[in-house]
Design a protein around this nucleic acid. Structure first.
Length: 425
RNA sequence: GCCGGUGUAGCUCAGUCGGUAGAGCGAGGCAUUCGUAAUGCCUAGGGCGUGGGUUCGAGUCCCAUCGCCGGCUCCA
């Protein structure tokens, strides 16, 4: 009988201590722990493994993220859509998912002599949108976007907090374009991707380009144009990348961006991939200037990847202390005694008028306890109000953000908040 | 799914050789109205993931099952 024994050894005491310190830090930053402490999300055994329940505070955060994304996309003329969560088997046969992806799909649901499947991807629906009318070369590129929630069967052993789940929402989009558009579309997409990553404070990530595998569909020209568009765009941005030679999907090359979590594991987030398969399968075309049918190129991309995973990575990145613009509660107002509540309400009213997410901690607790609790909730600004403040129309400010005065007038405080909201850091 | 570990109160965790479950925080109540990280006192709360089994007796032992944790494979 064999017994496997695991062990880890270090050459020096210091190396051991560093490793232990690292474990401690990783534990502190673990998004599963933070998610519970900050009341962002929960996973209920009764609901099901890998299925995320967003609690009110997490939902506020998520909505901010989604609003931000929608804004960014609308600026680039993306069109947002909503599509169903299930589709008939013919849809998945046409897309090829039933032949290539079935083992990752939730099992079929028979209804009235038809079989339905919960969607593991949004693509087929976006194809249906493209096909919903005849497309002319004049309207390309068409950019169809959706915060689309998909469900995939993942083996129980790989589930991990928000990072690896069975139901998640992709910030998905399909860009339909002509061959001449490919270069500029890819450039625009990557510009956007890096802009978004930067706005969320990420600069440490790995970029991979995956190129043509052995068994691939699409013409030589398709692959060449696409691969060089990906490389050129990255080089124009001065981003270094690795090439996964032959690592692309059979239907097209892609760029993947992976971001590190608290213990140094990389998680795939952004992805930009060509798809030479779906246009054929769905027989997509546009009418060209020559009045003939042409196949569009499809670029399938997600910037955050999944809202869930990205949120997990983000929580770990900031160890829960989110930037002001992403904090569900931006200001906690602490009146020292009950007689200060009236002034606290004035302050609250002013902040709310400026769309700042603030609340008054009016529990019958001591000021110190309230400060502690709000600190632990990692609220970026704590405004303490007592006799001094009430009489001088000011606030006393407690924050970890640098270069903020410890006390200021109400007006100044509002300006300080405005400034910290503008910079997405 | 596989290998290993684990599951006790809302949370974090203790529970000895099998003898009938305990702490802190939190919650509820009362008092306290207070200047930058925990005010004091009182009270309630679980039958130990679930289902079987062994035993006079099971958080404690055995089997099964579910969830979780770490790793493998795959991915957003």
């Amino acid at each position: 009988m064999l017994q496997r024994i695991y062990g880890i050894a270090f050459w020096t005491q210091k190396e051991l201590e560093d490793k232990l310190k690292f474990y401690e830090e990783a534990k502190r930053r673990d998004h599963r722990k933070l998610g519970k402490e900050l009341e962002f999300f929960t996973i209920d055994e009764m609901v099901g493994p890998g299925l995320i329940i967003w609690l009110p505070k997490g939902a506020v955060f998520r909505q901010i993220v989604e609003d931000y994304l929608k804004q960014k996309h609308k600026e680039l003329n993306y069109q947002f859509v909503y599509t169903p969560h299930v589709g008939k088997s013919t849809l998945w046969e046409t897309s090829g998912h039933l032949s290539y992806y079935k083992e990752n799909m939730f099992p079929e649901m028979p209804i009235e002599n038809e079989t339905y499947y919960v969607k593991p991807m949004n693509c087929p629906f976006h194809m249906a949108i493209y096909k919903s009318k005849i497309r002319s070369y004049k309207e390309l590129p068409i950019k169809i976007a959706e915060l689309g929630t998909v469900y995939r069967y993942e083996m129980s052993g790989v589930l991990h907090g928000l990072m690896r789940v069975r139901g998640f929402t992709q910030d998905d989009a399909h860009i339909f374009c002509k061959q001449d558009d490919v270069k500029s579309v890819i450039q625009e997409t990557l510009n956007l991707a890096f802009e978004v990553l930067q706005d969320f404070g990420f600069s440490d990530y790995q970029i991979f380009i995956s190129t043509k595998p052995k068994d691939a569909i699409g013409t030589e020209e398709n692959w060449e144009i696409s691969e060089s568009a990906l490389k050129d765009a990255l080089e124009n941005l001065g981003k270094s990348y690795e090439i996964d030679e032959g690592g692309g999907a059979f239907y097209g090359p892609k760029i993947d961006i992976k971001i590190k979590d608290a213990i140094g594991r990389f998680w795939q987030c952004s992805t930009v991939q060509f798809d030479f398969n779906l246009p054929e399968r769905f027989d997509l075309y546009y009418v060209g200037e020559d009045n003939k049918k042409h196949r569009p190129y499809i670029i399938h991309r997600a910037l955050l990847g999944s809202v869930e995973r990205f949120s997990g990575v983000l929580l770990e990145h900031y160890a829960g202390a989110l930037p002001v613009w992403l904090s569900p509660i931006q200001v906690a107002i602490i009146p020292i005694a009950d007689r200060h509540i009236e002034y606290a309400n004035e302050v609250l009213k002013l902040l709310k008028a400026k769309n700042i997410r603030a609340y008054i901690d009016d529990r019958p607790e001591r000021m110190n306890a309230k400060i502690r609790d709000n600190e632990l909730q990692k609220i970026p600004f704590i405004a303490v109000l007592g006799d001094k403040e009430a009489s001088s129309n000011s606030v006393s400010i407690r924050t970890k953000i640098e270069n903020i005065p410890v006390s200021s007038t109400l007006e100044e405080f509002a300006n300080i908040l405005d400034n910290s909201l503008i910079s997405k850091r």
